[in-house]
Write a protein that binds this DNA or RNA. Structure first.
Length: 488
RNA sequence: UCCUCCUUAGCUCAGUUGGUUAGAGCACAUGACUGUUAAUCAUGGGGUCCAAGGUUCAAGUCCUUGAGGAGGAGCCA
C-alpha cells in the first residue's frame, strides 16, 4: 500500500529509523500510537509498528499547523508521520521524529479501546487476542517465534535434511498418541448407516474414517528410509481434554527422522539442535529477550522467595547453550529417586517403589530442577509404558526411548530409535493389539532394505515457553486452541 | 477428567461477624503545568457485584447448580 504516492516518500520501518536512521534526513514512517503526552509547547507520541520492541518518539510542536490533528490521536490510533529525524532532546532515546506532516489513518476511540498504557494481565489479553499483537509482550513473543521457525529450517538445511510435508488428514488411528479429532463430511444429524445401525463411513468423503494427525512420525520414517535425513514441521492435533499451561489441542511439532542412526545419534542430534536454537535466539533476538527477561523478573517479584527462579531468563538460556545435558537411563533415574532425601522423607506424593512405573511430573522435576539442575535426557524406559514402534533392547524389558526434560517445562522432546526388525515389530504390534493389516505400508519398510533409524518430536510451543520465559503455552501461540476455547 | 482457588467500574483489585448511599489505584474526560518517557497535580463521569435458583426481615457477603478463568494432577510434545 502506498500512502504517500503523491509525495514520493517511501515508508521506513521504525526499526530502520532507530537502528540506522540518518539524523537530518526527512523521512516517513507509520504505526500505532502507544501513548501520547501533550503539554503547552510540545506533544510526544510513542509510535510502534511491530518491527522492533522499541517505539519511535514523534515530537509535535504545539505552535505548528499540524497540532490540530492531535485531538484525533490517542492510544491505539494508526498514523503516518513525515518529518525530520533529529537527535533526541530527551534521555529515553537517541533519535526522534520532528513531525512536519501527520495523517491519521485510523482512529481508536479512547473510551472503548481496551489496551491502556499500563500493564495488563495475560489472561485479559487472551480474551482480546485480536489486539494483543499490539502489546510489547506479545509482539516480542511473535518476533522470537518467527526467529525460531526460521532457525529450525536453517539448522536442518545446513545439516543436509529435507523437509517433508506429512498429511494433516490421516486414516491411521494407531499412532497411539492420544485422542483424535474426527474429519468427516457426513451429515451429523442423520448420517448414513450400515445394516446393523453403525455410522457408514464408507459413504464418507474418503471412504473411511479419517482424523486430524497426531504425529507425522510414521510418514517421516518412510521418507527417511530413502532420503536418510528428513524433518517435518507442521500442525498437530490432540483431542485430549487437557487443561494445563503446557498443552494445546492444536500445536506445532518438529519431527526429524534419521536413517543409519541409533539412539545415541538421536540424542546427539536433539541436544545439538536445542542448543543451536537457544543460541540463535540469544544472538538474533537480544532486544526482545531483554524485554521478556525484565517482564519475567517483575512477575517473579510477586512470587514467594522460595518459588522464584534462581536464574534470570538470559542466564537460563546461556546455561543451556554452555552445558551438556545429563544422560541417564530410566533404571538409573529410579535408583536416584529411590535413594533421594525427598523419597526418604516422603515428600513425593507418589513414592518411588517398584521398577516399571511411569515417572510422575514431580519425579521429573526433582531430577531436572533439584538433583542435576540442568536438562536431562532419560533413556531405555520399560517397554510397557512406551509406544509399539520403539526398538527393543536385548534385556527384553526396555526399549530405546529417550525423553528430554527441561526445567520448568518438563518433557520438551520425546523420541526413540525405531524398531527396524520386522519380526520384533510385528510381534509387539500383535501383543498390543494394533491393526497390522492397516499398517501394511509401515511394516513393509522393515521388509525391504530396513535399516536402523531414529527420530524425535519437539513441541514447538514448549520450546517457545522455554526461550521466552512465558508461563502459559496459550501465550506463545497467536490463536490458541484448547478445550472450550476456539475463539478468533 | 480430578483437586484447589477465583469471577465486584474499561483494567488490576479491596470490600469486616450478612445491615443504610459498594470503594481504591490505573485508564477515560476537563483544566493546570511541564522536553515528556506507562509524565505530574486537581476536578469529574463511570457498577445488571458472572448466571439461575435458594436461605433470611435483610445477600457483593451464606447454600445449591451452571458458565468462564487460574494453579496443580493425569494424558503428552
Amino acid at each position: 500500500m502506498k500512502l504517500f504516492t503523491n509525495k514520493k516518500m517511501k515508508r521506513i520501518p521504525v526499526i530502520d529509523l532507530l537502528k540506522a536512521g540518518e539524523v537530518g534526513a526527512t523521512v516517513t514512517t507509520s504505526g500505532w500510537v502507544r501513548t501520547k503526552r501533550e503539554s503547552k509547547n510540545v506533544a510526544f507520541i510513542a509510535l510502534n509498528d511491530g518491527s522492533i520492541i522499541h517505539n519511535i518518539q514523534v515530537v509535535v510542536d504545539m505552535e505548528s499547523a499540524i497540532a490540530g490533528v492531535l485531538g484525533r490521536i490517542s492510544t491505539g490510533a494508526a498514523i503516518a508521520v513525515t518529518g525530520k529525524l533529529t537527535e533526541s532532546g530527551g534521555s529515553g532515546q537517541k533519535v526522534e521524529l520532528a513531525a512536519e506532516h501527520i495523517v491519521v489513518l485510523g482512529e481508536a476511540d479512547p473510551e472503548k479501546y481496551p489496551l491502556q498504557p499500563k500493564k495488563h494481565s495475560l489472561e485479559f489479553l487472551r480474551e482480546i487476542a485480536h489486539l494483543r499483537f499490539r502489546t510489547n509482550t506479545f509482539s516480542a513473543v511473535t518476533r522470537v517465534r518467527h526467529a525460531m521457525i526460521f532457525a529450525i529450517h536453517k539448522y536442518f538445511t545446513e545439516k543436509g535434511f529435507f523437509n517433508i510435508h506429512t498429511p494433516i488428514i490421516t486414516a491411521s488411528d494407531c499412532e497411539g498418541a492420544g485422542e483424535m479429532f474426527r474429519v468427516s463430511t457426513l451429515d451429523p444429524i442423520n448420517p448414513p448407516r450400515t445394516e446393523d445401525g453403525a455410522v457408514d463411513y464408507s459413504k464418507d468423503f474418503f471412504g473411511k474414517q479419517t482424523n486430524l494427525t497426531v504425529s507425522g512420525q510414521l510418514e517421516a520414517e518412510l521418507a527417511a528410509l530413502a532420503m536418510t535425513k528428513v524433518y517435518t514441521f507442521g500442525p498437530t492435533f490432540r483431542a485430549e481434554n487437557s487443561n494445563t499451561s503446557r498443552h494445546l489441542a492444536e500445536f506445532w511439532m518438529i519431527e526429524p527422522e534419521i536413517a543409519f542412526a541409533d539412539i545415541t545419534d538421536d540424542m546427539d542430534l536433539a541436544e545439538d539442535f536445542l542448543r543451536y536454537l537457544v543460541a540463535y535466539a540469544l544472538e538474533h533476538c537480544p532486544d526482545d529477550l531483554e524485554f521478556l527477561a525484565k517482564r519475567l523478573e517483575d512477575e517473579e517479584k510477586n512470587k514467594k522467595v522460595e518459588e522464584r527462579s534462581p536464574m534470570g531468563l538470559i542466564d537460563k538460556l546461556r546455561f543451556v547453550v554452555d552445558n551438556e545435558f545429563v544422560r541417564l537411563t530410566y533404571t538409573e533415574a529410579i535408583d536416584i529417586l529411590r535413594n533421594s532425601n525427598y523419597n526418604k522423607k516422603k515428600k513425593f506424593q507418589y513414592p518411588i517403589e517398584a521398577w516399571g512405573a511411569d515417572l510422575q511430573s514431580e519425579h521429573e522435576r526433582y531430577l531436572v530442577e533439584k538433583h542435576f539442575e540442568k536438562p536431562v535426557i532419560l533413556t531405555d524406559y520399560p517397554k510397557e509404558i512406551k509406544a509399539f514402534y520403539m526398538y527393543q533392547n536385548d534385556d527384553g524389558k526396555t526399549v530405546r526411548a529417550m525423553d528430554i526434560l527441561f526445567p520448568g517445562i518438563g518433557e520438551i522432546v520425546g523420541g526413540s530409535q525405531r524398531e527396524d526388525r520386522h519380526n520384533h515389530l510385528l510381534t509387539r504390534m500383535r501383543e498390543m493389539g494394533l491393526p497390522e493389516k492397516e499398517m501394511w505400508w509401515y511394516l513393509e519398510t522393515r521388509v525391504y532394505g530396513s535399516v536402523p533409524h531414529a527420530g524425535f518430536g519437539l513441541g514447538f510451543e514448549r520450546l517457545m515457553l522455554f526461550v521466552t520465559g512465558m508461563g502459559n503455552i496459550r501465550d506463545v501461540i497467536a490463536f490458541p486452541r484448547a478445550p472450550k476455547s476456539a475463539e478468533f
